[in-house]
Design a protein around this nucleic acid. Structure first.
Lengths: 128, 128
DNA sequence: AAAAATTCTTACGTAAAAGTCAATTGCGCG
DNA sequence: CGCGCAATTGACTTTTACGTAAGAATTTTT
């Protein structure tokens, strides 16, 4: 595993622009180290970007993604804070389960669409 | 089942504004009938709105949602068009499966977070 | 019938998430 | 050393998905 990645390496890997990665840094989602002014991305930053992209595909806003990745990062603290995190984890899980349900329903309806099309195609073949 | 719904009935049901439903009409997602200038929403329109909300929760853009609901609406046409629809259905399904995978992965990581928290809480109880 | 509520159209405003452009700055190398 | 390429910051622009406000028409309630 490599120690550092340049910004353009990661833009290519994830199909985003440099502007986007700098924007995520401004937004506090990633914190690459610097050599002079140049950003150096470590494997941990790369993994964070992977998580950000997942969040984006699921339609989470930057603010929501920040909430999620902060839960991953949160250092072990005192009991009250631990319980607060457990609660927030459960909230996010509920959201994700809703999304999964939405996906199942949409897939089912698309199955319907496809079946209708295939039936129609079969009819056309008989008619000709 | 009722024949018509007013716009505010549906805004309440779906938790959106009248502006939003009118916007969706402008965007060609729904086409309520009119009595004079007033919109009357039929059960079919209501179901469409349900599908739109699902698409929104999944992070699809209006343009993508339009593509999806147009597949539902497309009237049986000729063979070439049927096959084109089948292809587009398969594309959307691939997208949805990706999203589902993203959800599973995020859920797994949240499980990790929770487990860490619970372990930490157990430790705190022992230490005290 | 008058008042109140709902709906309509039109138009301008805005927040989020980048895109685009300009003007540097630093690095490897022939 | 000078060239070119990659990286940086900063500012302005764009797109999407509505919000908001104004003013007129219609419908409903009292």
């Amino acid at each position: 595993m490599r120690e550092f990645y340049t910004i353009t390496e990661l833009t290519r890997e994830f199909g985003v622009s440099t502007r986007t990665l700098r924007f995520y840094e401004d937004e506090g989602l990633i914190s690459p180290v610097r050599r002079g002014r140049t950003r150096l991305f470590r494997p941990g930053d790369r993994h964070l970007i992977k998580q950000i992209m997942r969040g984006k595909r699921l339609g989470f806003s930057i603010a929501e993604i920040r909430e999620i990745v902060q839960m991953y990062k949160e250092p072990p603290g005192e009991a009250g804070q631990m319980r607060a995190i457990v609660d927030r984890v459960e909230e996010k899980r509920a959201e994700l389960r809703q999304k999964r349900k939405d996906i199942e329903e949409t897939l089912a309806e698309l199955d319907q669409v496809e079946e209708n099309c295939l039936n129609r195609l079969a009819e056309l073949r008989v008619a000709s």
